[in-house]
């Protein structure tokens, strides 16, 4: 992940800013600029998600690529936000704690960094609620 690419998505990464189609009342996170139901008839507006939801499925990563290898083992999950959409995120908890259906809420954490002299990537993770 390079700097301009990360910066572009900061609103979504820091604050769970996604979108909502006002035409069909569907929420999107990650944000979509084209509604998958209404397509060009859709009316897309920015929407900030509350940041609470539940774990739909999960894993604990023991073997990770370079950027994440110092953090292993870490819990990864698909979280269904209360507004509907699902996203992939880390859950900050002991691997034995995470369960399907567990309620979670968003927190602000470091996602990674570009080595000791590069930028630090911050973003959203979840903790048991």
């Amino acid at each position: 992940m390079n700097v301009p690419r990360f910066c572009r998505e900061i609103p979504s990464r820091y604050n769970l800013i996604g979108t909502k189609c006002e035409n069909c009342d569907t929420y999107y996170f990650p944000p979509r600029r084209v509604c998958i139901t209404c397509r060009r008839k859709g009316v897309i507006r920015e929407y900030q998600f509350e940041g609470s939801g539940k774990v739909v499925t999960h894993t604990t990563i023991y073997s990770a690529p370079e950027n994440f290898s110092k953090m292993t083992p870490y819990v990864l999950a698909i979280v269904e936000l209360d507004e509907g959409p699902k996203l992939t995120a880390q859950i900050v908890c002991d691997p034995s704690e995470v369960k399907i259906g567990m309620r979670v809420k968003s927190v602000f954490r470091k996602l990674g960094e570009e080595g000791p002299d590069g930028v630090i990537y911050y973003g959203t993770k979840f903790i048991p609620a």
Partner: peptide, 22 residues
């Protein structure tokens, strides 16, 4: 999805592991 899966720490085995768990 590099932006919304890999960038938050998802690996390929991790994604299939989540399917396995489900």
């Amino acid at each position: 999805d590099r932006e919304w899966e890999a960038a938050v720490g998802a690996t390929f085995p991790g994604l299939y592991a989540m399917m396995a768990r489900a």
